[in-house]
Nucleic acid binder design. Structure first.
Lengths: 136, 136
DNA sequence: CAGTATCCAACCCGATACTG
DNA sequence: CAGTATCGGGTTGGATACTG
């Protein structure tokens, strides 16, 4: 049976309460999701096989990678190409839509790398002020 | 006491295991976090007061908004200006660093809004194919 | 108004075992 | 290799009560 116990995945708690989350936020949460971000960035370079992607990202369980890829595939961002061979071979790549998204995400990632130092400095300053405030 | 039971917040599970997550991913997760994204986008327009921000975002609890703002403040992205008046008034705004980050995030958000239709179509196609495959 | 502290449910996510 | 099913720990996040 294909009925998974878990919901659509990656896109988290749709709310629980009566009202549903607007589609806009849902899509935004998929592309900004923990693993979604990293998958999109990796696939921007080239297509990847499943385990290849897993190694490239590092520290992601099979389950979460599968969920993430399925969500992104469903959203039309990732293309899944399963070749009928033994052993199985599945290639994942970006669709045109996915490439657009991935480029936005990459912008964010590159900014992060560039400015990480500034962030860490800010953090140290914040912590120092906090520590000082607790005593004096 | 200022010792919160909960950790640094927003930036989630640092791993649990021995090895720590690299700072790069940590920062990336802060700016792509569920509420971090929305806060940054709102603050790009103008400064907001706490409850103003809460209403503008909608469906965010005080707790999560507080946590998110504190994390972003610690990372040097958000400036907190608490005025010593009764009743209290606290304004939140972006720092220069935060504005840079927020502009990246806005790019992503604008892409999402623009292409949401395409995503929804893709989703319907995916679901239709799935439903068909289960029977045939 | 702007938080802080605590309780508790829901859920994410990883580890493991198993299928094709 | 690629993926599914299940279990369990830890985190998220809302509701409530309280402070200044």
């Amino acid at each position: 049976m294909a009925v998974s116990e878990e919901p659509a995945a990656v896109g988290k708690y749709d709310t629980g309460d009566g009202e549903a989350m607007c589609p806009y936020r849902l899509v935004l949460e998929h592309v900004t999701s923990r693993w979604g971000v990293l998958v999109l960035i990796e696939l921007l370079d080239r297509p990847y096989r499943f385990s290849e992607l897993r190694r490239a990202i590092g520290r992601v369980s099979e389950k979460m990678l599968t969920q993430t890829l399925q969500t992104l595939e469903r959203d039309g961002l990732v293309h899944r190409d399963a070749k009928p061979v033994i052993p199985p071979r599945v290639d994942y790549s970006l669709t045109d839509l996915g490439r657009e998204a991935a480029e936005q995400v990459r912008g964010l990632a590159e900014w992060t790398q560039k400015r990480m130092g500034a962030v860490q400095e800010a953090r140290e300053g914040y912590d120092a002020r906090k520590a000082g405030a607790e005593q004096g």
